[in-house]
Amino acid sequence: MRIMNRLRARPTMVVLVAVLTVGLVATGAIGLFDALDSADSGQAGGQTPAPGNAASPVAAPGMDALGDAPKGAGYTDFGEQCPDVECVRIVGVTLKDGEHKQDSDKASDAAIDKVFKHLLDNGWARVLPNNEQDPDEVPLGESYLTDGQVLITATPVNAPDASAGLMLMHAQEPDS
């Protein structure tokens, strides 16, 4: 009976609550540090990060993937941008012969059409967005082009001499 009275005493309860609270906080802190460590490494267990994760993004395709620019156009490499797991290459398209001086939307559409038609003539394939079925209903600039290794899409660029922009990235199988 004497032991039960001591366990019910206020000082004993305070000590037990303090020990329990410290144990819970310590366990939570250890779990938090483990979770942060595995998030930083990209894999559970603190292993070395695999290529392609945020710690080492995959390099963007090179300019040589585009080949030569179509007649009347030129390319400007704006370099790699690495926002996440994979880097992309931004390329400006410049129309020669004063075509870029027309309305900017028309110039952009003309530049994209010229480059996309040139690439399609050189064996690239067109990928329609959003499960579209009829290519006649989708403007060429809203499609993607691929050669199986590289995927290209139109993107806005803010450069005075570029009529349009392209974004080059690695082609991937769906759900990969």
Rank of each mutant, 00 (worst) to 15 (best):
R2P: 09
I3A: 12
M4G: 14
N5A: 11
R6P: 04
R8E: 13
R8Q: 14
A9W: 08
R10P: 10
R10W: 14
P11T: 00
V14C: 06
V15W: 11
L16W: 11
V19M: 08
T21N: 11
G23K: 02
G23S: 09
G28A: 11
A29G: 08
I30C: 02
G31W: 03
G31S: 09
G31M: 06
D37P: 00
D37N: 07
S38M: 03
S38L: 05
A39W: 02
A39H: 08
S41G: 06
S41M: 06
A44V: 09
Q47T: 14
T48G: 07
T48D: 11
T48I: 12
P49T: 10
A50W: 07
A50F: 08
P51A: 05
N53Q: 10
A55C: 13
A55I: 14
P57M: 02
V58G: 06
A59L: 12
A59F: 09
P61T: 00
P61W: 03
P61N: 00
A65G: 09
L66W: 02
L66A: 00
G67Y: 02
G67I: 04
G67L: 02
G67E: 01
D68N: 14
D68Q: 13
K71Q: 14
G72T: 01
G74P: 02
D77A: 06
D77S: 04
F78Y: 12
G79S: 06
E80P: 08
E80I: 05
Q81R: 11
C82T: 05
E86H: 12
C87A: 02
V88F: 10
R89I: 01
I90Q: 06
G92P: 05
V93E: 04
T94C: 08
T94G: 12
K96T: 14
D97Q: 15
D97K: 15
G98Y: 10
E99S: 13
E99A: 15
Q102S: 15
S104T: 11
K106S: 12
A107F: 05
A107D: 03
S108A: 15
A110V: 08
A111Q: 00
A111H: 03
I112N: 00
D113G: 07
D113E: 10
N122K: 13
G123P: 01
G123C: 07
L128A: 04
L128P: 01
E132D: 13
E132S: 15
E132G: 07
D136F: 11
D136W: 08
E137Y: 06
E142Q: 15
E142D: 15
S143D: 08
S143N: 06
L145Q: 02
L145N: 00
T146H: 05
L151I: 10
I152G: 00
A154G: 09
A154V: 02
T155P: 03
P156E: 06
P156Y: 06
N158I: 11
P160Y: 10
D161H: 09
D161P: 06
A162C: 03
A164M: 00
G165R: 01
L166H: 02
M167R: 08
M169N: 09
M169W: 07
M169K: 13
H170F: 07
Q172D: 11
E173W: 01
P174T: 04
D175A: 07
S176W: 07
S176M: 11
